[in-house]
């Protein structure tokens, strides 16, 4: 039985805004085991990004508890237990690709030899060898996002938190990166928490799909999904895939995600 690495108990989060309180998360209870690939899916405003940010200690919950690697999110962040990938690549425009990958390593205070070794291996992992000296604007959107994944992996974290990392990319690039991410996950065995609003993406990538519903953001249903480790893109035409996708869609519908 794999160990539980992320555990949320009765999590609540209310934002105080000028228009009154907004209930972003309500009574979230979720366990994520080591090595799992968990997708959080739901419409805008369902709190999926907020939940990820709570795990990353970028937001503080107003109720309930959350533990990451047996620590509080704050401790886990200070221990650099996770790598975070944002929706935009968030590369620093004045740094070359290799310098961008080096950024977290410099913050961690690693020596130059270790930094270089991690830059080389992680850029290779995302197929960006040869682009070390380029500046971000010289790369396509998909390549920029791959660079930001390399940057997150360079920290060598136990888990990856990904917030709609491919949301801003076109369908073709997204398919390609989904395949690459899956290979990466199989190779590195990292725990991944992945926020998306794409059903095919969630079903293709995940071992577990958390269907969330909006206002207030809560978990509607958790769907197990394991299509085997060696899947290619064409698995999306199989009946099994379509069955799970249907189940996710039904879950979203029942959670009032399609209401006006």
């Amino acid at each position: 039985m794999p160990e539980t690495v992320i555990s949320a108990q009765n999590l609540d989060l209310t934002f105080e805004t000028n228009d009154g309180p907004v209930h972003a998360l309500k009574d979230i209870t979720l366990d994520i085991a080591e090595g799992e690939f968990v997708s959080l899916i739901g419409p805008s405003g369902c709190g999926k990004t907020t939940l990820l940010r709570v795990i990353a200690d970028l937001e503080t919950p107003t109720g309930g508890t959350v533990s990451v690697n047996g620590m509080t999110p704050d401790e886990a962040r200070l221990a650099r237990a996770y790598g975070y990938v944002f929706q935009q690549s968030a590369l620093l425009p004045w740094r070359t690709i290799e310098e961008n990958v080096a950024l977290p390593l410099e913050v961690m205070g690693l020596d130059k030899a270790t930094r270089n070794q991690r830059i080389v291996s992680n850029l290779e992992l995302v197929n960006l060898t040869g682009f070390e000296k380029k500046f971000p604007w010289q790369l396509s959107g998909g390549m920029q996002q791959r660079a930001s994944i390399a940057r997150a992996l360079a920290v060598e974290p136990a888990m990856l938190l990904m917030d709609e990392p491919f949301g801003a990319l076109d369908e073709i690039v997204r398919d390609h990166l989904n395949e690459q991410l899956l290979k990466l996950w199989a190779k590195t065995k990292k725990t991944v928490v992945f926020v998306t609003h794409s059903i095919p993406e969630a079903v293709f990538l995940s071992t577990k799909i958390v269907v969330m519903s909006p206002r207030p953001g809560r978990i509607h249903e958790i769907i197990d999904c394991n299509l085997g480790t060696d899947r290619a893109l064409d698995i999306r035409e199989t009946p099994e895939f379509l069955r799970i996708a249907h189940q996710v869609r039904e879950g979203l519908k029942a959670g009032h995600s399609y209401d006006e």
Partner: peptide, 12 residues
């Protein structure tokens, strides 16, 4: 905010 969040995830 994105870049500040990024630095925060690095515990900078």
């Amino acid at each position: 905010v994105l870049h500040l969040d990024l630095m925060r995830t690095y515990s900078a």
